[in-house]
Amino acid sequence: MNTDFLQGMRSSVPVVVGSAPFGALFGALAVDNGFSVSDAVLMSASVYAGASQLVGLDLFGKNIQPWLVVLSIFAVNFRHILYSASMAPYIKHFSGVQKAFAFFLLVDPQYAETEKRHEKGLPVSFSWYLGLGLSVYVPWVAVSALGAFFGKMIGDPHALGLDILLPAYFMGLVLGFRQRSHWLPVVVASSLVSIVAMHFVGSPWHISIGALAGLVLAACMPVTSDTLEGEGAKP
């Protein structure tokens, strides 16, 4: 195996630690909501977007029209549009088939690690991308199946403290970008607006509304040579 692939696999460790309990929780809740084990695995393997899978489950359980379920999942996943736009320059050299694979594997940590790798000045090669992507995808599908099989035995995720892992992991990702220009104002704006939007508009819209606030702010800030380069990697 080449080094890029192995480096990709290595950077998957915190991702898997942060997301595995969440995947198991999805499997367990899916069976609770009347899914078979294979339905749960199909959803994890095909949709492959944790938060939206949980939202979908919740709606399936409430007998909501199928098109509304699909629309809600689309709304939760809308942020990916921003991901694929912002990483476009780093993966332009992928072939068409490679891009098709790459976009399928584009979950939040995959995007964040891609940005970080580019920022470090390392090549975003397809082997690296796939090494990371598969090392996150395969455990995700596997723990969903385990959660579906052994759901009753997992116990209460709250009592085990598992509910903190995902937000803590995402917070680590946010901190990973603190060298970028306008990082602090963007983080503060998006956080505050997301919190307010969660209260007044509700989930999942708070994600898009909060994100938009930070992006608009970044676009309105004075353009520096830093921002022109796309990332403010300072020594």
Binding site: L82, S86, A112, R180, A189, H206, I209, L212, G214, L215
Partner: peptide
């Protein structure tokens, strides 16, 4: 360039 900080903060906050 602000996408990672903006989107991930909106998820966590």
């Amino acid at each position: 360039s602000a996408v990672p900080a903006a989107v991930l903060s909106a998820l966590v906050a």
